[in-house]
């Protein structure tokens, strides 16, 4: 792929530009996480008729910064009986898993950190790494709550990756590509060409629209489960498991889990945006279309999905473990298969 990256066009491909390309998403994750935490605080306050943080800065907008500083200052406790190496490694692995996924996310038509051809496949592979981190952290803590949280987490991740993978596979069937940049550029020309509405095509695509909308919803639900958000926050279900797999973590390592959770939220939202909501394309055809506007649209859409996740978190109760499995295996999976078959049929007929 040429010209996937404006930095390489401008400065050539050398050590410094590669470093810049790597650190740009990191910069983005840090800023985004602060904004997302503030959004979580403020939206929850708004839903619950509270004010939320008001003391740190005007309307409390510096609250996330204050929280990060607080977490940095806190004592970093390693339990005596824990498996030290795994215990200390786990938060980094989880964060790496979340951050590595940013490598293939197309922020704009002119910027994707690594425009590899198996982007979607890569995202899925790398997403599973965080499950490993969770199990490591939960097991190494030598805490029964952590262990139970980790066990729940792994079963949850495995069962919800399959419907999510089916949803993504359907798009791959439609596009014959796993390159996220290509998938994005295929959806240009207004919201009617997004894959939530069956992708580009004539009137013959009308009958496939219910299935693509269904897949979008299936992917969204599965992504909630993958990021351990309510109603699927069972691995850390505070009312029964205290804090689940990160019960024993404190200070900076806890902050890593925290950041990873928010980073993961953005990753799944970004994938949803890219494959179903047109990626960096403007919803109005050529209006406000372009590399710079692309960044705006992409972040706007992704952040909208993140806000949706926050909204759901403060509205719904939590599932039980067996009910979660029921939803995953007996509801979402068959539905995603049905949609997949329908879309495959559509792709074959076209």
């Amino acid at each position: 792929m040429e010209s996937t990256n404006f930095l390489w066009d401008l400065f050539g491909r050398n050590v410094w530009t590669v470093l810049a390309v790597i650190s740009l998403p990191l910069l983005f994750v840090l800023v985004y996480a602060l904004i997302a935490i503030l959004a979580e605080l403020k939206i929850s306050a708004w839903i619950q008729e509270r004010l939320g943080p008001m003391r740190t800065g005007p309307w409390g907008i510096l609250q996330p910064v204050a929280e990060v500083i607080k977490l940095l200052q806190k004592e970093d406790i390693t339990p005596d009986q824990s498996s030290k190496l795994l215990y200390n490694l786990a938060p980094f692995i989880i964060f790496t898993g979340a951050y590595a996924a940013f490598a293939v996310i197309p922020f704009s038509s002119a910027f994707v950190p690594a425009g590899i051809d198996v982007g979607l496949f890569y995202v899925f592979a790398i997403g599973s790494i965080s499950a490993m981190g969770i199990v490591m952290g939960g097991w190494a803590s030598n805490n029964k709550y952590s262990l139970m949280g980790a066990m729940r987490s792994i079963s949850q991740l495995i069962s919800y990756e399959i419907p999510a993978a089916m949803a993504i596979l359907s798009v791959v069937v439609l596009t014959s590509s796993m390159n996220m940049q290509e998938i994005s550029s295929m959806q240009s020309g207004g919201f009617w060409n997004w894959f939530i509405f069956g992708g580009p095509g004539g009137w013959s695509k009308l009958w496939v629209i219910p299935f693509t909308i269904g897949l979008t919803i299936i992917y969204f639900i599965a992504s909630l489960a993958e990021t351990n958000r309510v109603p699927f926050d069972i691995p850390e279900g505070e009312s029964e498991l205290v804090a689940g797999f990160h019960t024993e973590y404190s200070g900076m390592k806890f902050a890593m889990f925290f950041f990873a959770e928010y980073a993961n939220m953005f990753v799944v939202s970004a994938i949803l945006t890219t494959i179903f909501l047109g990626g960096w394309n403007s919803p109005f055809g050529d209006f406000l279309q372009g590399p710079w506007w692309g960044v705006f649209w992409f972040i706007l859409k992704s952040f909208f999905i993140v806000l949706l996740q926050i909204w759901i978190r403060w509205t719904l109760p939590r599932f039980r473990v067996d009910q979660l499995m029921h939803v995953g295996w007996k509801v979402l999976l068959p539905l995603s298969f049905v949609c997949f078959v329908a879309i495959s049929l559509f792709a074959m007929l076209n």
Partner: peptide
């Protein structure tokens, strides 16, 4: 009871 089930918002409505 709602909070035990994971629903935090009703808790604050009632406390209000």
């Amino acid at each position: 009871f709602g909070m035990d089930a994971g629903a935090f918002t009703p808790f604050l409505y009632y406390f209000r």
